[in-house]
Design a binder for these strands. Structure first.
Lengths: 195, 195
DNA sequence: TAAATATTGTGCGAAATGGTATAAAATGCG
DNA sequence: CGCATTTTATACCATTTCGCACAATATTTA
């Protein structure tokens, strides 16, 4: 392709955008914040990624990639549902508490406040929730066939409860909860919900 | 007290502030938005309630009053823990889905995104979480002494799981979930967590 | 009635914001 | 080489934003 070569790396730029948005949310993030964090100047950003809402949605999708991978790997890793969900939550806690201070879940902590002003972000959030429900349910259904002791388990509803667990981990981390507290909570959730 | 009498009603003004903040969050709400919704002009607002952050915190506290009342009434209303929590969640769903479109929980949907920029809001959110945990735990402890069948229940952790339920109701409502779906989820949560 | 006090409301101003026009720069292709 | 093309980077613009100064207004107290 001809033309002046791009100076930025798309992954790194998205990563930078994700960082600011994760910290400040959409509304509180200025284009100057983005320019600094993405190491690009404003016109280049606009040219490559669109307006602020577009960038946010792309950064959010980038954030959700990790989740998708975890659903397809960590959650299927072992023979035991309990072990798999424990590993999954442990991994999530690592992400949520991976900075100082902890920033929790980008999706559940920053998207909801914007949802009423940005219909597309609302759709993104709704799809994300549906996707997690579906991923969890799938693993639970599989468990019901393999492990015979889960007779009273309702995969559809239990999956939603497990997502509630994931969400509370994300919220509580951002509010300042300690890693240890979250791990104990996640363990108890798995033990209580998957029976 | 002498001087020109206030034209506004403090409750109504706070109610107006709560409405906009609930819809848009702190950062996306302008002082003009507030002026319109509180039916006051900007200097009067500033004089009576302080700056935008102050107003938000007061509106949030106002929102949380309802919760406090519910913790002290609805959650203690009957002899059955299950009935009380079911009633509590039903009431919460009513609040979360009481507008068109649903706005979910003001605290859990709008505060988290601001928390890293406003330490005092972070403290408010943390206190709120602690308060709900404590209120739920108290009811569970009481149930353990009254109803002899809850031997394996760990009140501290179960309370956190019930708050996770409350939080997911608030988030899912805002993302567009239907009332019926949320009620079914809440029922299943109570049934699964309090055993 | 007059002074003191508290609130209202118009309107200002400095700063920040989202977005873009425009020209320079860097590459590939003929 | 020279042209087409794409990206960069400076600079700018219109708008919005927060916060406040200031004068007008309404009430209580002396």
């Amino acid at each position: 392709m001809r033309g002046r070569p791009r100076k930025f790396n798309e992954q790194e730029a998205l990563n930078g955008a994700m960082s600011v948005f994760w910290e400040k949310g959409l509304s509180a993030t200025s284009l100057d914040d983005l320019a600094e964090s993405m190491k690009m100047n404003r016109p280049s950003i606009y040219n490559a990624f669109g307006n602020k809402e577009d960038i946010y949605r792309k950064a959010l999708a980038y954030f959700c990639q990790h989740l998708g991978q975890a659903l397809e790997t960590t959650l299927i890793a072992s023979k035991s549902v309990h072990d798999d969900f424990n590993a999954f939550f442990k991994q999530a806690i690592g992400v949520y508490c991976g900075t100082e201070p902890s920033m929790g879940c980008m999706a559940m902590c920053t998207a909801p406040s914007e949802v009423l002003s940005y219909p597309e972000i609302k759709a993104d959030l709704e799809q994300l929730i549906v996707r997690i429900d579906a991923g969890f349910k799938k693993r639970l259904v599989q468990a019901k066939t393999e492990e015979k002791t889960l007779d009273n388990l309702q995969p559809e509803l239990a999956a939603k409860l497990l997502q509630a667990t994931l969400q509370t981990l994300g919220l509580r981390a951002r509010a300042g909860a300690l890693v240890q507290e979250l791990k104990v909570l996640a363990d108890y959730a798995v033990k209580t919900i998957i029976v």
